[in-house]
């Protein structure tokens, strides 16, 4: 035994240069992004990554140098993150989202959407009927919403403060409108997130939202303004309410996936529903943005009831066709 030659040492000596090279490439890529790497380097990166992975496997089998294994684990992990990290051209992703992913995801949760619609409509009808018969009911819908877990900070004071001036004249309408926008986008996100709590809270939110709508309309109706108020509401409300209902549908789909996971494990089912719901939600926020635009501009500019109804009908038709019309291309890959 003249010279103690460890096989693991030879193994390391042969490959170390490649590991170092991969490490340097990763360092540079992390600092300056992909643009810092030349095309040949970019081509080498996945190869070096696979080499590092195979080195790790071999090292685990033949080497007892813990420091070496630790290093290779960390290096492979970093390279893995880089090779498999979230990376796509922003425009390609946005294009794919609007062309395929979003409508696909919305279509996929049509059952839940229908359920959310029915709940909202039912609550609206009930609230409408109650307030029409007994105006005091209007007040009682506000605490009921708080109990359902809606944001009390934004509501208790501000809701009452903004609701009553509505009856006095046209002045208060914009205040209520901007209030409704933030309120609805908040409801949308909560409705989605609440779905996790086994749908119960999402259903509650949908009902509360519908009840608010019904109560509002009843208030106007009592003053003989039902037709005008529906036009005033629906010019943006078609988009806004549809967005909130979709969010509720996404929430319900998560909740039902947790309760009835079917073939998958519960964790898996929650993940699939969560990701699909997230696609829907990203679009819902876009819808709420559009609704805000309609609310801010179209409603100020369009003062004729018939035109308002026309816009409302048109948006309803556009959304319906966009989401539910049959498509040639394959659906979202979720």
């Amino acid at each position: 035994m003249a010279e103690l030659q460890l096989k693991s040492h030879r193994f390391r000596a042969e490959r170390e240069a490649d590991w170092r090279r991969l490490e340097r490439l990763l360092d540079r890529a992390q600092k300056g992004g992909l643009k810092k790497l030349t095309p040949p380097e970019l081509l080498d990166l996945p190869i070096l990554y696979r080499q590092a992975l195979s080195s790790l496997s071999v090292a685990r089998a033949i080497s007892l140098d813990q420091a070496l294994i630790d290093y290779l684990e960390a290096l492979s992990t970093r390279a893995y993150f880089f090779v498999y990290g979230a990376r796509a051209s922003l425009w390609a992703r946005i294009g794919g989202f609007f062309r395929r992913d979003w409508p696909g995801a919305v279509k996929a949760i049509w059952r839940e959407t229908l359920a959310a619609t029915l709940i909202t409509a039912l609550a609206a009808v009930v609230a409408f009927g109650l307030v029409m018969r007994e105006p005091e009911w209007f007040q009682s819908f506000v605490p009921a919403q708080l109990a359902a877990g809606r944001d009390p900070a934004a509501t208790t004071a501000s809701l009452r403060a903004t609701l009553y001036p509505v009856l006095n004249g046209k002045e208060g309408l914009e205040v209520m409108a901007s209030f409704l926008f933030t309120h609805n986008s908040q409801i949308a996100i909560f409705a989605f997130a609440f779905g996790f709590a086994l749908c119960v809270l999402t259903v509650g939110l949908m009902a509360a939202n519908g009840a608010t709508l019904g109560a509002f309309l009843a208030l106007f109706a009592q003053h003989g303004l039902l037709f005008e108020s529906v036009g005033w509401l629906m010019i943006h409300g078609v988009t806004e309410l549809f967005a909130v209902i979709l969010a509720g549908g996404a929430g319900i789909s998560i909740g039902s996936a947790v309760v009835f996971p079917g073939e998958r494990s519960r964790l898996d089912a929650a993940m699939h529903a969560g990701r699909r719901g997230a696609v829907v939600m990203a679009g819902v926020i876009v819808m709420l943005f559009l609704a805000a635009l309609l609310e801010g501009f179209a409603r100020q500019l369009v003062q004729v009831d018939a035109a308002r109804y026309a816009i409302a009908t048109a948006t309803a038709a556009i959304w319906g066709v966009y989401f539910y019309a049959p498509r040639k291309a394959g659906r979202a890959a979720l």
């Binding site: 979230a86 997230a278 696609v279």
Partner: peptide, 13 residues
């Protein structure tokens, strides 16, 4: 691969 919808979902929660 870490997808955009996964990131959106975890942050919406």
């Amino acid at each position: 691969r870490l997808t955009a919808d996964a990131i959106f979902a975890r942050n919406a929660m």
